[in-house]
């Protein structure tokens, strides 16, 4: 099976993101970058297939600034076979539908059985690219995926359909895709693995080919939301902290406050 993972480089989840003085962008100065969390789950999910069947190949693609190569190298160190960077002038300005078109061009060339995206990128938080990529490719799409596996039957090594576990309220729906499919990942079965030392050494030596976004023929500019204003979230804190020690008394007091002051009981 051939898997293509789309992984975006975004601010590390531990970073405190600050709004820049212009009030409509974020201050990039203090940001450390990482693979977006859901995309890291997608990488792990792909590698779990490779663990189960060594003939599986996993390629990872990222579109963005040259620094995204560091995140691709991280994915290689985790165990991906190859990485592709889509970059060049205009790449960073692409969003949503434009990104999906560019990634679709990469997928058309790579011809994977499965394309994995994250549920949403941890910067724009849109959750658009996976669905839009499926639309651009004309492939079906399954969202909130936690597992996939080749359907039973057919000669060894061939892909005879793919079973997909989709998280829904109260459980999972299992869907079968007869041909290539785009999945957006909610969570992998295991936590994303750490790169092994040999993995890191191997990844260092790997070539990461760069594709110029201009060569992908995305064409006319596509609509995207324009940021008018950015602000920090409403400040919280200054709450009442109770450390009386007597459980019953504190419980009475809290219930009273929630009823009379906060009016939520």
């Amino acid at each position: 099976m051939k898997i293509l993972v789309c992984a975006k480089q975004t601010p590390d989840s531990t970073v405190r993101v600050k709004v820049a003085p212009d009030g409509r962008s974020v201050d990039a100065a203090q940001i450390t970058w990482a693979v977006s969390p859901y995309d890291e789950y997608a990488v792990e999910m792909a590698l779990e297939r490779k663990d189960a069947d060594a003939s599986t190949t996993v390629a990872v693609v990222s579109l963005g600034a040259a620094r995204a190569k560091d995140s691709l190298r991280q994915a290689l160190a985790m165990g991906c076979d190859e990485a592709i960077l889509v970059s060049g002038p205009g790449a960073e300005a692409l969003e949503g539908l434009g990104v999906a078109k560019a990634l679709a061009a990469v997928a058309q060339e790579a011809k994977p059985d499965v394309v994995l995206c994250g549920r949403q990128a941890s910067d724009d938080d849109q959750g658009l690219v996976g669905a839009a990529l499926a639309e651009a490719l004309g492939w079906p799409h399954v969202a909130t995926v936690t597992k996939f596996a080749p359907a039973d039957g057919g000669p060894a090594g061939s892909v005879n359909g793919i079973d997909v576990w989709k998280e829904v309220e109260g459980g999972h729906e299992v869907w079968r895709a007869p041909g290539p499919v785009v999945l957006t990942v909610q969570k992998s079965e295991k936590e994303p693995r750490y790169p092994s030392l040999p993995g890191i050494m191997k990844a260092k030596k790997k070539e990461i080919p760069e594709k110029d976004v201009a060569s992908l023929g995305i064409g006319a500019s596509l609509p995207k939301p324009e940021i008018v204003k950015m602000e920090p979230p409403a400040a919280r804190g200054g709450g009442k902290i109770m450390k009386d020690g007597d459980a019953k008394r504190t419980a009475q007091e809290l219930a009273r406050l929630l009823r009379e002051e906060a009016k939520v009981l």
Partner: peptide, 25 residues
Amino acid sequence: KVADYGVVADVFEFLPAFTDEVKKA
């Protein structure tokens, strides 16, 4: 730091007492 009401307590002691109070309320 984000709580409006914070209780510094062992949850195993506090929670049953609190559930009782909510039931009464």
